[in-house]
Design a protein around this nucleic acid. Structure first.
Lengths: 173, 173
DNA sequence: GGTATTTAGATGTTTAAACATCTAAATATT
DNA sequence: AATATTTAGATGTTTAAACATCTAAATACC
């Protein structure tokens, strides 16, 4: 997945365009009614958290009809990525968006819904072999049908989305 | 707070630089060990939530010594912005980063710590007049001393931070 | 082989988020 | 004026996040 390096002009226009859309979009200072920020970094950090909450709320609403939470959805997708192989709970934790997740109890809830299966790993009896069930795969397939629309919650072009993602990677430098 | 429009060259260099730092930073696909994304939008959305969690965790750790949570901090800052005037609970809610906050009980906890004061509004007896206390202002002043450093958790230049913030505003377009 | 350390993940407890409901005051309606 | 509707925010309940601790298996060290 590489940027189709389509030249300087495109990026420049993108940037100049961004400078002029103050009247179209609700800026962060209006959203939280904060007139001033100490500096650009603080403003970007606050905007980042605010926008993430905004998306998170939308995604939470989106997932509600399927009876799962965002964290549960995250685990199911990780398990599908491994399917039909199993994966340990700690490996799941490493791949999660929220690295502090309480994986044990999230798996309890997913197991109660019969979306995942947990067995003791024979070669390491401390560890768990976790698998997504057919029911879990079915649920994800249902989510996928609607998810296509959700991909475009953010009102950005492809180039802008790519640039945003690169900036976010750099944030965590 | 306007962008010091310092021209095309700067933005272009910024962009080209971003394209070349794959080896310096940990990209999102490595952080969550996900090789593929459906499209740029999905990748940006996931990166946004991941990066926000990353910052949120840092901020949570940062605030822990002060004995307040992120949401409580958010409310205190809003109240300081109004000081010495009071503000209603619903007005606080409107300005919060997380628009779903349980402001009533957050105020309960802040009141228990004597960081805020709540009175009944005389002109509308349903409403609350909320004020930050001297103790609350003192706590914020202490936080501010260290906050300067926290502003620079994100490893971006001023221009990049500004561009990121603009892109985020556009996201919610 | 015996002790210490690390690792996997389960469990207990406290706090907070999510959601619905409820009370009472303020408006609106007739 | 009497009733209905809206609004402010407090409260009850369920679920999950945060944090520490615990158990047992695996590994390291002597």
């Amino acid at each position: 997945m590489k940027l189709p390096v389509e030249g300087k002009a495109g990026v420049l226009q993108l940037f100049l365009f961004l400078s002029t859309l103050s009247h179209l979009t609700m800026k962060i200072e209006e959203e939280i009614i904060q007139p001033k920020f100490r500096n650009y970094h603080q403003k970007a950090v606050i905007n980042l958290i605010f926008t993430s909450n905004w998306i998170g709320n939308l995604q939470q609403q989106f997932l509600k009809p399927f009876g799962i939470t965002i964290q549960q959805f995250n685990i199911l997708r990780i398990l599908r990525g491994q399917h039909p192989r199993s994966i340990s709970a700690s490996a799941i934790k490493m791949r999660m968006m929220d690295k502090n997740s309480d994986v044990s109890r999230l798996l309890d809830r997913l197991e109660a819904k019969e979306l995942v299966e947990r067995k003791i790993c024979p070669s390491d009896k401390r560890a768990a072999d976790v698998l997504i069930t057919d029911k879990g795969l079915g649920l994800l397939a249902d989510v996928d049908k609607d998810q296509q629309a959700f991909d475009h919650v953010i009102a950005l072009s492809d180039d802008e989305a790519q640039l945003l993602s690169d900036l976010l990677d750099k944030c965590r430098g």
